[in-house]
């Protein structure tokens, strides 16, 4: 929430005491008729129910069956898919990989995005239109081309990165066979594609921070760095939370980049960069075990829920301490 000059909540006209009915939305404007809320949200919910939720719910129900979709065979098996999943080393492998990739991609990316936005935010920046357009170039570059380009860059014998590594006197790194090395390769693909995108989000948020705050800070003698920490960052608190949550949800479901690197759904010959959604897809479209894939889907959802919640509370606490 931006630190607008008029702090929230303080300007509500004093209302007569009402029996406290905990409001669904404490930030609402009380004089606006809340009933409209149903109408305004209806289009979203209706369409989402039909096209977003229904297909997934159908598949989720399959988690309790042993299914052969093409033969039309549906055997209810209760929790068997889940018990099998719990004992499946491939699942835990995918889980560990997913978390690893998520950590080494999300944290540097958010830091870089904020830094980038800060530079772009500066009104003295020359050529800002140009720089801002560049931000989105990775995002519009065709996925097919990226597969080829990054596949080349990370080649063990002749890839450009390894040539540089070799020139510096080190041994070539196998970015595809290695576990950590493949995670680094994937993380760099994610960072490459999404840093500019997130920088734009942060930039939009930074521009919403009133300049008076900067003015008063600099008049108080705060230098560039201090202004950043005491004006910019707090103003970005909500945005950081937002980006982190979306980044968590997206990051834990990372799919395209490992698929691009490996070329198939197995996530490398020994599953060294198999991720949760890749594993789901593998079970769904290679193994055709739709019941099992659905169980994986439910597991992913639960994991994302837990991590997002933890994330949310941690961010709130840290940001709370700062301001």
């Amino acid at each position: 929430m931006s630190e607008s000059a008029l702090p929230r909540g303080k300007s509500k006209p004093p209302t007569p005491w009402k029996p406290s009915k905990k409001l669904d939305n404490p930030n609402a404007v009380p004089s606006l008729n809340g009933r409209w809320g149903y109408l305004f949200t209806a289009p979203f919910f209706i369409m989402f129910l039909i096209f977003g939720l229904a297909p997934i719910v159908f598949s989720v129900v399959l988690a309790f069956f042993d299914v052969d979709v093409l033969s039309g065979i549906y055997n209810p098996v209760g929790l068997a898919n889940f018990t099998e999943l719990f004992a499946d080393s491939r699942f835990w492998n995918a889980l560990v990989n997913t978390f690893d990739i998520w950590l080494i991609s999300t944290i540097p990316m958010i830091i870089m995005s904020i830094g980038l936005a800060a530079i772009l935010h500066n009104p003295f920046l020359k050529g800002s239109t140009f720089w801002r357009t560049i931000l989105l170039v990775p995002n519009i570059t065709s996925v097919l081309a990226i597969a080829i380009v990054f596949g080349q860059l990370f080649g063990r014998d002749f890839g450009m990165i390894n040539i540089i590594i070799g020139a510096l006197g080190f041994e070539h790194v196998d970015f595809i066979q290695g576990t950590t090395s493949s995670h680094i390769a994937i993380a760099s693909m994610i960072i490459w594609r999404w840093t500019g995108y997130n920088a734009l989000i942060f930039l939009a948020a930074m521009l919403a921070i009133p300049s008076e705050l900067y003015e008063s800070a600099s008049l108080d003698g705060a230098g560039k760095w201090k202004q950043f920490i005491y004006v910019t960052l707090p103003g970005l608190r909500n945005t950081i939370t937002f980006v982190l949550i979306v980044g968590t949800i997206g990051g834990l479901q990372v799919f395209a980049e490992p698929l691009i690197l490996g070329g198939s759904y197995n996530g490398g010959d020994s599953g060294q960069f198999s991720t949760l959604t890749l594993f789901l897809f593998d079970q769904a479209f290679v193994g055709y075990r739709w019941g099992y894939a659905a169980a994986i889907g439910i597991a992913i959802t639960l994991i994302v829920m837990i991590v997002s919640t933890i994330n949310f509370f941690i961010t709130r606490r840290i940001a709370g301490d700062k301001s």
Binding site: I148, G151, R156, D157, F158
Partner: peptide, 19 residues
Amino acid sequence: GTRIGQFSSDWNVGMSKGT
């Protein structure tokens, strides 16, 4: 064997260079 994956970029280069 050189352990290069078929159809990878290293493989394409290797074909030309006699790897």
